[in-house]
């Protein structure tokens, strides 16, 4: 079986490839969004912790 025949999918190429393509996009998108959400949450937590530490220092400078 050669490549162009494979890509042609017996005449159903637009349907088959669009399905696989959309699935790939959505799966990668979910992973990306999950990573991004976690990164943002971690950054927020870090900033919050630093602010808390600075305030503790400001209250008792010793």
């Amino acid at each position: 079986m050669n490549l162009s025949e494979f890509l042609h999918m017996g005449g159903y190429a637009p349907y088959v490839w669009s399905c696989y393509g959309l699935t790939a996009i959505v799966l990668v998108g979910m992973e990306w969004a999950g990573r991004r959400q976690l990164q943002l949450a971690q950054e927020k937590a870090r900033r919050r912790a630093q602010m808390g530490a600075q305030m503790a220092v400001a209250e008792n400078p010793s």
Partner: peptide
């Protein structure tokens, strides 16, 4: 024919 391959996603 080949359209059934959509089943896998």
């Amino acid at each position: 024919k080949d359209a059934f391959r959509i089943i896998y996603v």
